[in-house]
Nucleic acid binder design. Structure first.
Length: 132
DNA sequence: GCCATGACGTTCC
DNA sequence: GGGAACGCCATGG
């Protein structure tokens, strides 16, 4: 909430506009391209404060799980899904999107293949102790 | 100026 | 592949 003025989020909006139709990008990706790799949350916040008439394809932005979060805003999530489907993006039974196919790759990487970062870097930083 | 909240991400098991 | 916990950063009160 907190009606942000969205004045300093222009770089973020610019990145979102760069997302081609039929493709989706994660908040972290947008944040990284905007210059804030750790401010993924703020990206979502910026989009929330954004208006539907700003011309920014906010519906092409989903979380890293390829799912629509829209905390509390169910109507927003429904609209987002409808828009994505209209662009040719298919949803899985669980409401998830196949990021391997519809995920936006600004680096123009070979289609059908993604570096993936799910379960590779494990011994990189285990100091976190996410769980006992 | 400090505390609480939030369209999330990444790591660990 | 899925669930849970910790972490980051910015806005609001």
């Amino acid at each position: 909430m907190k009606t942000g003025d969205a004045s300093g989020w222009e770089p973020v909006y610019r990145v979102v506009r760069r997302i081609p139709a039929g493709r989706v990008a994660s908040y972290g990706q947008i944040a990284a391209l905007a210059g804030m790799p750790r401010a993924a949350r703020q990206v979502g916040y910026a989009l929330h404060a954004l208006d539907a008439q700003t011309g920014v394809p906010w519906h092409r932005v989903v979380n890293a799980q390829g799912r629509i979060s829209a905390r509390g805003a169910v109507e927003i999530g429904g609209l987002q899904r409808s828009r994505l489907e209209a662009e040719g993006i298919s949803f899985e039974p669980g409401g998830r999107i196949d990021l391997a196919r519809f995920g936006w790759r600004p680096r123009a990487v070979a289609p059908g293949r993604v570096p993936d970062s799910s379960k590779r870097a494990r011994a990189v930083r285990r100091s976190r102790g996410g769980q006992a």
